[in-house]
Amino acid sequence: MTLKEVKEILNAEVISGDHDLNKEIKCAFAAELLSDVLALAQEGALLITGFTHSQVVYAADAANLCAILFVRSRWPNEATQQLAIQKKIPLLSTSYMMFETCGILYEYGLKTCALKVEDGKD
């Protein structure tokens, strides 16, 4: 699934990274604890979160994630948006709650990140 499809399926707004919407999403990971994102989200994952602080962009960048989708109309501040542009991490925002967001994307065939993958160390 591409980011463009995610945008259409969820009627999401693109906050930044308009030109990167053809990016293919490897898997999805939904969480608001950064440590879990760093430990468990796989490279190329779409992060689904309600957490909009700049740290989430740094974490996504450290873990080479594909993009961040904010739920329940959460919108990051200007500094976080600028950081995301600089890091080339597209940001999207949907009005759906996290539960509904996961449910709909799962229904459309987006896969979860694999459990307990020792990525990068194989």
């Binding site: 939904a30 509904e100 799962y106 979860t112």
Partner: peptide, 22 residues
């Protein structure tokens, strides 16, 4: 044992909705 995304996806498939008013 499932991650949030997968478990929620399966719950949703069984008809549990997350459509609370925002």
């Amino acid at each position: 044992p499932l991650f949030t995304f997968e478990l929620v996806g399966q719950l949703y498939e069984k008809g549990i909705s997350g459509m609370n008013p925002c």
